[in-house]
Design a protein around this nucleic acid. Sequence first.
DNA 1: CGGCATGTTGCGCA
DNA 2: TTGCGCAACATGCC
Length: 263
Amino acid sequence: MPELTDVEIARRHLEDWLKGATVARVEASDERVAGAPAPLRRALLGKRVRAVRRRGKWLKIELDDGGRLFSHLGMTGDWVCRKPTDSPERLERARIDVVQRGGRTRSVRYVDARRFGRLIAARQDIPEWTELGADPLLDGVDVRRLETLLQSHHRAVKSVLMDQALLAGIGNMLATEVLWHARIDPRTPSDTLKRPEIARIAKAIETVVPRDLREASAQSPPERRFAAYRRAGKPCPRCGTKLVSVSLDGRTTVFCPRCQARS
DNA sequence: CGGCATGTTGCGCA
DNA sequence: TTGCGCAACATGCC
């Protein structure tokens, strides 16, 4: 599921399902994901959902008493909506049942195969949330700020783009796509990039993120969402050269050796 | 069976 | 201090 775009879609769903509703039932079957059930229940039961926000890959459900529930989808997490009478999903880890003002009931289930996701109830914003960098959708992309970020680190440009404390929400898929779009070798040391290249990266983020949000909303198959990601050995959609794969930060990174050549 | 996977954290090492 | 490589986490899927 997770990258800024899929998390934003999850946010829209949760807002639709939960906003204005009152929590009537809470289950947390997996301590690894949600901690002990009791504190979660205490934080949510009887509370009304005021808003659902997103920053980077984190979701925040705000309650009318000032409490908040943070949700990270990890690698395989997702929220789905069911009826309260429906049996648990196969990989369900938690559920929040709510009653809307008109009396309509919903059962919102957290599903997560690998259980890397997290549910954290808190009374204030947690560091994982407050320490996030600029979010491309919420804050826009500023070329000068991006230039400062890139030049203040001596790291592969892809690592910088994926650093959540610097830019929030860019993961392996989006970083791969952004650099393909900008025609930049992902291994390029970030502080050697020149202004025109940085401008191309900024433009690529502004283009790729909203476009992928539309693609993901339309449920386009993943192979149509991305030009390079998971396409090693296949022809570059731009020039036909075989895409190559390297390992960077322990992640598979695909790029075109011809149009993403280092200058 | 082996290998790979959208994320994050923590450790050893240069 | 900074950055890199890698293992770990736990499970599904091809």
